[in-house]
Amino acid sequence: MLQHPQFDPIALSLGPLQVHWYGLTYLAAFAMFYLLARLRAARAPYAGTWNPQEIEDMLFVGVLGVVLGGRLGYVLFYKPAYYLAHPAEILAVWQGGMAFHGGLLGVIAAMAYYAWKTRRHFFEVADVVAPCVPVGLAAGRMGNFINGELWGRVADPALPWGMVFRGAGELPRHPSQLYQFALEGVLLFALLWWYGRKPRPLGAVAAWFLIGYGSFRFVAEYFREPDNFLGLLALNMSMGQWLCVPMIGAGALFLVLAHRGVWRSPARA
């Protein structure tokens, strides 16, 4: 049975300025996205169709989508009654509370805006973005682990990597943050990067992101402790699992439509 290292959540203090590990993981996520997007846009089948300034512009609107969407998603999906009674706290992101599925919707809105602005097809943008996202998710899950939050469900005491987390009682738990790091981050990145190396039907790479993330997150939720203010919902599924169901369904639909050649990139001057 292992003990969580109980890292100090503050990575660096400079007088009154405190830099948190979780903030650094977000910074690392955006930096890795930028580098990977530059690399992806410079290679076939995208070589010559994107320039570095376009990647920077896309990252800027994407960051807004992640932060605003992630926060509003948490407010609407997880604690709507609380924030309805305390609307002044909706923008208090420093108190914690971000939701991936809300961030995803925010990024979709940001990509739609960027596609419209640059006269690209939405899925032309999404197919470039999709393989670059999982490394950011991996960074975020590592931030969860460092903070000792979003721990897993109680594990068999014989589990070699069962871990006791501060504030979670004395029983060993699954380090579900590391499971999600491996599945939604490392494995999903490897699969999408490999799949996206060759020309694919427009929308297929983005569709596989939805299917892959939704499936991996659905499985990981069986090892993650449900939010104590929600518990398990219908069919003994967590909120995270219920939010993954339409995500997987949409990905499957988009994949079928992509292989039928429904979408075409618009001509640009």
Rank of each mutant, 00 (worst) to 15 (best):
T49I: 14
A37K: 00
P87H: 04
A88E: 14
G103E: 12
F77H: 02
R40C: 06
Y74C: 04
M32W: 11
Y46P: 07
E56K: 09
L91N: 06
F30K: 02
I108D: 10
F77T: 07
P80M: 03
M142F: 11
P80Y: 03
R38H: 13
E56C: 09
Y82H: 04
V129G: 03
G69E: 08
A109D: 12
Y74T: 04
A115T: 12
E89R: 00
D57F: 01
F60H: 11
G96M: 03
A42P: 05
P45V: 07
G62Q: 10
A112C: 09
A126D: 12
A126E: 13
R120P: 08
I90E: 08
G140S: 09
A109I: 11
D127L: 03
M142T: 07
L104T: 14
D57S: 12
G65F: 00
G106S: 06
V133A: 12
F123D: 14
V66H: 01
V67T: 08
L27I: 15
A109R: 03
K117R: 15
L84R: 03
Q53D: 15
Q53P: 02
V61M: 07
M32G: 10
H101D: 13
A28T: 06
L36A: 06
R43T: 09
V75A: 03
M58I: 11
V135K: 00
M32H: 05
A81L: 14
G140V: 04
G102E: 10
V128A: 09
L84C: 10
G65R: 01
F30Q: 08
G65W: 00
V63C: 03
V125M: 11
W50M: 04
R141C: 05
V133P: 09
L137W: 08
L59G: 01
G103L: 05
R120S: 12
I108L: 14
A115I: 13
G96W: 01
V125Q: 12
L68V: 14
A81T: 12
